[in-house]
């Protein structure tokens, strides 16, 4: 029977080391992230096709995460094409509809155009909205936006 025990022990050791080996590799420079979803309403109505941007305030050149709202004003923040999430910590939040591709594609595969800015400047150009992102999933809603206020169209037509 001892022979069997040795064999079993050996097998367990092999399996264990393989499992541990599988933890090697895959090192990534992606920062630790939290996962944010939420809803945006302006004047009590869902704000659709708006771009929500979370800009890290602790490290100003760190990558921002963005989300696009759907018909219900729901957004999910994405870090890159295939990764959801947003960096942890304090963020400045901007909400804007300027330059968003809108509508369905026509017969020639062309989008139906770009939307203008509908959100006042206090939520984008001069945004005072902030949010703190913590590890794990969380919901961050912006439900009491008002359309009162100056709307500033971004102008970068000239310059260097």
């Amino acid at each position: 029977m001892t022979k069997h025990t040795y064999f079993l022990r050996f097998c367990c050791l092999m399996a264990g080391s393989l499992i541990m080996l599988s933890g090697c590799g895959g090192a990534s420079d992606t920062p630790e992230m939290g996962y944010v979803t939420g809803t945006i309403k302006m004047d009590g109505k869902p704000l659709k096709n708006a771009l929500v941007t979370f800009r890290p305030q602790d490290h100003e050149t760190a990558r921002q995460s963005v989300g696009t709202t759907d018909e219900e004003g729901f957004y999910e923040l994405k870090y890159s094409l295939r990764e959801t999430g947003v960096m942890l910590g304090k963020h400045q939040v901007t909400i804007s509809t300027a330059g968003m591709e809108s509508g369905e594609y026509g017969a020639d595969g062309e989008g139906s155009g770009e939307t203008g800015e509908k959100v006042p400047a206090q939520y984008n150009v001069n945004s005072e909205l902030t949010a703190v992102v913590e590890p794990g999933s969380q919901t961050i809603d912006f439900l009491d936006l008002t359309s009162e206020g100056e709307i500033v169209e971004q102008d970068d037509s000239e310059g260097y």
Partner: peptide, 25 residues
């Protein structure tokens, strides 16, 4: 190049202009 590279799009400057729109050489 990693997508985590430092990149600051500077997309909002004073008065709603893109930050580099107000830059001169």
């Amino acid at each position: 190049i990693s997508e985590n590279i430092d990149s600051n799009p500077l997309d909002r400057g004073p008065n709603g202009r893109a930050a580099w729109a107000i830059f001169t050489p």
